[in-house]
Amino acid sequence: MEFEGFNMNICFVLPGIARGPVGGYKVVYEYANRLVKENNNVSILYLNQDFLKNYNVPFFLKKMGARFLMWLEPTWFKLDHRIKKVSNLDKKYKKQLGRLDVCFATSAEKTVYEVDKNLSANKKFYLIQDYENWNIDNTKLINTYKVGFKNIVIAKWLKKVVDKYSKDESILIPNAIDTHLYTRKVPIQKRRNHTIALLYHEAPHKGLKNAFQVLKRLKQQYPDLEVTMFGKFPKPDFPNWITYYRNASQEKTVEIYNSVKVFLCSTIEEGFGLTGIEAMACGACLVSTNYKGVQEYAVDRYNALLSSVGDIEAQVNNVKLIFENPDIQEELSSNGVSYTKNFTWTEAMKKLNDAIEE
């Protein structure tokens, strides 16, 4: 079959329904939206076998509940209405998908097996967004790179890892952001000075324990410090100087990014770090640990202030440096906005279509 980039039947396979913002899902949804606009037929297959797994409910209720949630979600992202959402709990889900030209596995858990064993497609890809050894051991994870799909990676460091084990060289397509949505609307000097935003995430590798230590020390030195957090988890018992938004929309996160001087990231390890680059695009000064993923877009002392993972004192000092130096604020903010313009969806889609049509 000849691939012309249009009128193809394309499917992304996701490991269940995300009730709140998830970076990996967001990237898939962005690709899906743009492929639909290029006149392709796009489906998203949700692997819902674990839906309500902790509850003793009849299968038909489980199936109906999953179907309702698929219709409802994502509430946090504007997914094109032309995209077909399919559940693997439906007996005829393969028939609903139709004959696939292109199929994407999107995670090590569940989706690689589904695409490999249960779905037929002329071309199969594996979109790898992190070294996903959270719930599977390293051997099983590495074996997913060897299945034989065309691997796509979102970071240079990840490409080095995957290419060690895969049969063919992977394709590097760095994550992109919507540079029309994520923009600097409020100049850095017009924002309240002692303000910080960060992502709240309960996974240990996100480094929130360290971030809270940084915030507590800063609050002691700046009594007027105001912190804004957003995330998908229920609101924790925060002190009153921390404002929390659960399941914030894209528009709300843009508002948050534009309201603060600093975006703080204490991540231990992560594939890329979308919130960091989004905040930079909105003019916030990024203070981050120097984990592998952030190195894809952050350059220390140019568009961000980076420090060793786990170094609490260094992050405190970097925030203070920004708070107390308007010139550094302006330089980091302006360089961040300029640099992030390199990460456009136009470029990402060109690379993806080239890979599909190869």
Rank of each mutant, 00 (worst) to 15 (best):
K150Q: 15
Y165N: 06
T144C: 07
A203W: 07
E202K: 10
T111E: 05
V153T: 12
L119I: 15
Y145G: 03
K167G: 00
N118Q: 13
N193I: 14
Y200V: 00
S107P: 00
A121E: 01
Y200Q: 12
L141P: 00
E169C: 04
K167F: 07
Y165K: 05
H180C: 14
E109V: 02
A108V: 08
K185D: 14
I154G: 05
E202G: 09
K124N: 10
N138G: 01
L172H: 06
Y165H: 14
K156Y: 04
F149L: 10
L198K: 02
V112Q: 00
K167Y: 01
P187S: 13
Q129V: 12
T179A: 08
F149E: 00
K167R: 13
L119S: 06
N175P: 13
V112R: 04
E109I: 05
K164M: 05
T106A: 05
S170Q: 02
V115W: 09
K185S: 15
V162K: 01
S107G: 05
V115C: 11
V161H: 10
E109K: 01
N143R: 13
K190S: 13
A108R: 00
D116P: 00
P174T: 01
T111N: 10
K185G: 12
K156T: 14
Y200T: 01
L198D: 03
L158N: 03
R184E: 15
F149M: 11
K124V: 07
Y126W: 02
A176Y: 12
K150Y: 01
Y165T: 01
T111Q: 04
K150E: 11
S166D: 02
E114F: 12
L198Y: 08
K146Q: 15
K123R: 15
A121V: 08
T111R: 00
L158D: 08
A176Q: 10
I177V: 05
T139V: 14
A203G: 09
K117P: 01
Q129E: 08
L199I: 12
I188Q: 04
I154N: 07
V112C: 14
Y126T: 11
N193G: 07
K160W: 06
Y182P: 01
S120H: 04
Y145F: 15
S107M: 06
D137W: 09
A108H: 05
N133R: 11
Q189S: 13
Y200K: 00
K185T: 15
L172I: 12
H194I: 00
K160Y: 05
A155T: 06
S107N: 09
P204Q: 10
A197C: 15
